[in-house]
Design a protein around this nucleic acid. Structure first.
Lengths: 331, 331
DNA sequence: CTGAAAGCGCTTACAG
DNA sequence: CTGAAAGCGCTTACAG
């Protein structure tokens, strides 16, 4: 493969000039510029990104650590982040955590090797004290970090978050408004920072209405089966309820399946509201009422963070994205 | 950040020795080895991956070019591939193509810069002649390529593919067996190599039964809305049918929504079979009968390809993964 | 405006 | 078994 030296020789200039032409640094006479370009074309020269990175002290890469790419919400986020980074000439290194804290820890320990342009954390899970220390240390090393979905600005990490608590609260208020008094919450995922925020919104609404009840809160993981099994169990236990606020759309779909299996109609017998507005929801029957997400806007907010040159100081602010109720048939 | 030189100084050895200890090359006296390790710990030394890559002539990275990560099937594939690569100490660079051929072309042109360990193509789309030439050229440059989902072994690209045609044929045979004679195909996506294979299986089964009919084939894109709209249109056109074979689970879900909207029951009035066994299908009501996929096995097949040292010759074989009918309620 | 030279941080022949 | 030296392919002060 051709190198700058090959190009320089063919163009009859020095390698410094080749570099200047290709990077637009300094000024080069028009004639030399043309000679360089034609040599580049003739040799099909491609600069070695690793050599560039070594020289510049930084790679052209941003790592994305994602909770679980099998969840639609994270997949969509990944898509938008990749597209956005690419527009700025940055590559995306993907690490799927599968919600396992130790994988996050391991990567953070290895990260310095990669001399990354930055790291994006897209985790719903609450992070441990040990991980917090790692993050603090990484920041001190000059690593640029950003968080999407979870507010880590207290750790000095610029964060792009959705409004979780208030959105859940409004959603439950909507159900209360419709006359429901026994509203269950499925999916207060212990260990999930985002899940906990959503649950707090539910609890606030229920408490304000004087309708909070322990038997209406069903802790589960974030998957389809979890939503289904939680409803089976509640029904088996004889718990009465006429509405469900789910912690995610997947949980809501699972819950609806369980209701159907027990011959309960949605929304007539039990109203269901999801969380996240995953594409699928609109094609369910009944179509799923849910709470909107804006993965595209979240990705957009990250953009300037990593496109900026090294060493640019930044305050760690938290950008807030609004959510709204997407009314369909299930509630 | 500490370098080998810093470590060497602190350990009182040469940088060559540090390198040998860290990489397990050559033999180093036990005592020096210990001194090096303790210096590494004390300085929190992390080797610079770019310097290593430059020296070795190759990065520790594999690029994954994926059709569209928003489709569940591709997300799952990505998950498994990332996990598998990581187990071998390789990083994954993700490029989401969004089914746009020009993005593939662009990346292939840029790829030489990255000195990748390899490239995985996970595309359902048929590739253009120009792209074929690029692939051939890339192979000649010594770039290691693999394809998942589409058989590109004719281009010398090692391929891991699912059985598409035979699986579709068996699925349609199952419907024929149940007595259906008017079986529609939704989702012969023009421009999709995989979609076309699936369609051919359908056509073979229908032709063999003497039941092929042009009005039963509905070309659409791969998304939910496509399946729904195709069914609306067929119904509006007064086309009679009692079963649908869909080109993907998403299309099947869309189709089921349309049937529901027109008061047709699944499977009583119309049976529906999807393709791909996406997790969601089991939680729909009626639960979706579909055709299995094995993203985990596909990822596994790729493993040895990139873990092998540079320059190891390989014949471009096509590994075939079996699919089977997953019987649920919708057909 | 341009070139010669240094140096980014590694690893690996080459000597000893 | 170990070290001094070369070199991977760039870019950027430094001279001129």
């Amino acid at each position: 493969m051709a190198t700058v030296v090959d190009v320089a020789r063919r163009a009859g200039v020095s390698s410094a000039t080749v570099s200047r032409v290709l990077n637009g640094n300094g000024t080069v006479q028009e004639e030399m510029r043309l000679r360089v370009h034609s040599a580049v074309r003739a040799l099909e020269y491609r600069p070695n990104a690793m050599a560039q990175g070594l020289r510049k002290g930084q790679a052209n890469t941003v790592a994305l650590l994602v909770g679980d790419i099998a969840q639609r919400h994270f997949a969509e986020l990944t898509l938008h982040i990749q597209t956005t980074l690419e527009a700025d000439g940055l590559d995306l290194l993907l690490i799927n955590l599968g919600h396992r804290q130790e994988r996050l820890t391991q990567f953070l320990a290895r990260a310095p090797s990669l001399r990354l342009r930055g790291i994006v954390l897209a985790l719903s899970d609450r992070i441990s004290k040990a991980t917090e220390r790692q993050i603090l240390a990484a920041r001190k090393d000059g690593l640029r970090l950003a968080s999407v979905g979870q507010d880590l600005s207290a750790l000095g990490v610029a964060s792009v978050v959705h409004e979780e608590r208030a959105a859940a609260q409004r959603s439950v208020a909507y159900l209360l408004d419709k006359g429901h008094t026994r509203i269950a919450y499925v999916g207060r995922i212990v260990g999930s920072a985002i899940g906990t925020e959503r649950f707090r919104g539910y609890r606030a609404a229920m408490t304000a209405a004087g309708l909070a009840a322990k038997d209406l809160v069903w802790d589960m993981s974030y998957r389809y089966a979890a939503g289904r099994d939680a409803v089976y169990r509640a029904l088996d236990a004889g718990i009465a309820f006429t509405a469900i606020q789910a912690g995610s759309d997947e949980i809501a779909v699972g819950a609806m399946a369980a209701l159907h299996d027990r011959a309960l109609r949605v929304p007539d017998d039990v109203a269901v509201i999801g969380f996240g507005d995953v594409e699928m929801g609109a094609y369910l029957r009944p179509a799923l009422t849910t709470i909107s997400t804006h993965a595209d806007r979240a990705a957009h907010c990250l953009r300037e963070l990593f496109a900026a040159p090294l060493g640019t100081a930044r305050t760690a602010t938290a950008a807030l994205l609004q959510r709204s109720l997407v009314l369909r048939d299930s509630a």
